[in-house]
Design a protein around this nucleic acid. Structure first.
Lengths: 240, 240
DNA sequence: CCATCACCTTGACCTGAATCAAGTCTGGTA
DNA sequence: TACCAGACTTGATTCAGGTCAAGGTGATGG
């Protein structure tokens, strides 16, 4: 598909994409959107389907344009560490030299925009600010991972679950911990456990404990209200 | 200090630096070394002295030109997670947006080359390949962290210590696991423990166990020989 | 040559989270 | 309305690794 055939459509595809607002694509001017669109292609991934294989040759970058995905690494015996959840606007594929350092699969269905490395290179040559934006993105990710290593290496189970809840808050449009917060947890407990380096039973127990302590209320499995967000934040920092 | 005053010295400073061979500085041509030198300054840090404060405004990048440093994050009550060790040629400071996401201190004395962000920006504008090199560096680091999260979240103490030993091997000039390997562990047990998310006692016990199993021999506290590197590597991957 | 101090090792015991094992809840089907 | 399957919760028990408490070791200085 070449930009010269259907320039309007192609332009629009990028113009109305969440990546345009949130992701690396924001470093491209409006008038150059067709070039951007021409180097990328859309794809959808069904719930639970994998689209990045850990260790496979890294040929593409991805922008999540809809839905959610989980990123993970595996040990040979099947133990799994989820290294992150990504949603609309998030950029994937920087954690790779020649091969991907992580696997990725859709969490309840996702749409993605795929940028082959070759095309991305053409884009960075043409738009140097894009390369800078990619570095910024990598830096942001590195800073997040720094905190996550502290979580996995040094926090208690209680602190980990509290941190997870606070992290979810900060993904909302208007994070505000001074009032109760309604949260949607679209991932199953298994994923939360593998993200926090715990077992599903421990996650469940601690959520129940938080409920008993009136820190949260559990409206349904996926729908939780933080009744005392600031107290949970205190627990998350290990200061309770 | 301006390059025009003592161009020869300044040029030489970069020409003979390990960063020139190993680090981001390799993306600059010989003839432009004076420009590079002019944007950077040397510094030495004594054993145990801190030179990056977690949360402080991030104003500089650093290249380790000699010795070693440790990078870490802290919890309010003093729990510490060492997120990495850096040595000659390693680049520091990418894991930061406006403020550093980690602290850093010298491990037995270190020399560094400091690049203020403003100067680095002048360099990346003049040498676009440097910006690309920085992104590569960030990607390499991200891939490493991915593996480290799996270690902290999912590996047993035995697997962690084995992984640490294998990692140290891979820092040698000629990594080769088919024969016994002599290793130097310049960091105290406390640092190894904080790197692996364990206690000093557990690290000590597991090294003793490895010794009893004839997997390693402990010649002195800092000097260890891996007698069966491949078996240790197998343990590290969780496949024993 | 001994004292000191910091760091490391070892042992005994404890505990937080894992494991093992029932339940329970929910949404989908008939 | 009852049944079923999959996901979650809860309880009982175990165990890996932490904590507490002695020792050991080796580099430095008197």
């Amino acid at each position: 598909m070449s930009a010269s055939h259907i320039p309007e459509d192609v332009h629009d595809r990028c113009a109305h994409c969440v990546g345009r607002r949130l992701s690396v694509c924001s470093s491209i001017d409006d008038c150059d959107l067709a070039i951007l669109a021409n180097e990328s292609s859309r794809m959808t991934v069904a719930d639970g389907r994998s689209f990045i294989e850990e260790g496979a040759p890294a040929n593409d970058f991805f922008v999540v344009t809809g839905g959610r995905v989980k990123l993970f690494t595996l040990l040979p015996d099947g133990r799994r560490q989820i290294t992150g959840f990504a949603e609309g606007g998030d950029f994937l594929g920087l954690a790779a030299s020649t091969s991907y350092a992580f696997g990725a699969e859709a969490l309840g269905g996702a749409t993605l925009c795929r940028f082959p490395h070759a095309g991305m290179q053409r884009l960075t040559e043409r738009f140097p600010s894009l390369e800078h934006r990619l570095r910024e993105e990598a830096s942001r990710e590195l800073a997040l991972m720094q905190a996550r290593m502290t979580l996995l290496g040094r926090k208690t189970a209680r602190e980990r679950v509290a941190t997870f809840l606070i992290e979810r808050c900060q993904h909302l449009e208007k994070p505000d911990l001074s009032h109760p917060v309604e949260l949607d947890l679209p991932m199953p407990r298994t994923d939360i456990a593998d993200y926090l380096g715990l077992t599903i039973e421990t996650v469940s127990r601690i959520l129940s404990a938080f409920k008993k302590e009136k820190l949260i209320s559990i409206r349904s499995i996926t729908h939780i209200t933080l009744l005392m967000p600031e107290r949970i934040s205190t627990i998350a920092e290990g200061m309770e």
